[in-house]
Design a protein around this nucleic acid. Structure first.
Lengths: 211, 211
DNA sequence: GAGGCTAGTGACAGTCACTGACAATTGACA
DNA sequence: TGTCAATTGTCAGTGACTGTCACTAGCCTC
């Protein structure tokens, strides 16, 4: 492995500057009210360059999120094969939250990321993209689960169904966290744990009998 | 109730013409490759008028879907209070599929609707909007479920969690139906039934023991 | 049934995201 | 140092969408 040359480092710096400035402007003034021109003027590159780094204005908003998701997938891959599908998913998220903070801070301040996440949840256009990206990740997760269990994803619907139910709960978790008052990493971790525990109970035929 | 005047009827006709032409062009040439100008030229109204009826190009693609969703919500509201939350959701969808066909045909041919649904599933921009709309409906469903069970949605997470898991499965159903070969109303009904039955089993800790 | 009121429409100009084409620049490397 | 190739900037254009204002046509009153 060779050291990255000047050219490569410059590219990396431009990319990170674009992300940082974009997220700061987005969270400060709102996503819609921030134009791409404002971003590129601050970073001092041309608009054309922005669109060479990011295929759309939306994409830059998900740059950090992208990294978080990749970590989660890796965490799932590393789960011991003895765990059942649901436990593997659950433990992958929970262990992920423990190490994710440092990785984020290397790119942007942690609180900027947390504010970005809330902005995504509260901006319709971004929420839509977020949800679509989530389903793309679900497909990845389903394939990993299927492989763990020695199943064919296309023949047996259970991996996709389990992942869909799991992801649904994760999404509600993110939503509730965004609306709540405690906007810390610890809070989202606790909510995740709590809500996943509820899933089994929520599926029980009648709730009133066993409250 | 008075008969709608000429003005009102004219508006209704314009709206339906825009929907029909838009869906036909979308399904024939693709959503992205169809411009709003093409739609309005065919219907012979100005672009400005199009945007007075629909707030965006996306919205017209969901005009029929909107109606279907409203029906489902109504069906859920009419479920007997004795049913558990999950059964109520399940039966509302299944009974919905039986009567939905006629309602759709009043606006557009059934097969145009089915093709539109597939187009939505296979067009990233529309899929994103579709998913966001789904979560909006989930909120409605969660509130209905909470009310049925005499719970407070904001205090007890179970309604939202149950609905999220349920909707996740419904989404997978729609996806699988779109990818499959049998594109009939009956097929989607059968898939719905089959996949919902799998949900309980998919959550079981270990799958291998009970295949 | 003439005339005023107003909802609905069209025409026009402008903004913003995004793209293709080509020219200018600048690391990389012989 | 000079050449090559990657990166960036400039420019012109498209398509979705919005504000404004004038105009047309149902509607309603006298």
């Amino acid at each position: 492995m060779t050291l990255p040359g000047l050219r490569e480092r410059k590219k990396q710096r431009t990319r990170e500057a674009l992300i940082k400035v974009a997220l700061e402007l987005f969270t400060a003034h709102g996503y819609e009210r921030t134009t791409v021109d404002e971003i590129v003027d601050t970073v001092e590159v041309s608009q054309r360059t922005f669109f060479r780094y990011f295929s759309s204005k939306e994409e830059v908003a998900f740059a950090v999120q992208q990294m978080v998701e990749e970590r989660f997938v890796e965490a799932l891959r590393r789960r011991p094969p003895g765990e059942g599908p649901f436990d593997a998913l659950r433990n992958a998220v929970l262990s992920g939250w423990d190490t994710i903070g440092d990785a984020i801070t290397e790119v942007v301040p942690l609180d900027l990321y947390l504010r970005t996440f809330q902005m995504i949840e509260s901006t319709p256009a971004l929420l839509a993209v977020h949800l679509r990206r989530s389903t793309e990740m679900e497909e990845t997760l389903a394939r990993i689960i299927a492989e763990r269990e020695g199943l064919d994803v296309d023949a047996d619907p259970r991996p996709r169904i389990a992942v869909a139910a799991f992801s649904g709960v994760m999404r509600v978790t993110g939503q509730m966290w965004g609306r709540g008052t405690d906007q810390s990493l610890e809070a989202i971790r606790a909510l995740t744990e709590q809500y996943l525990d509820h899933l089994g109970a929520a599926l029980a035929p009648r709730w009133r009998d066993r409250t």
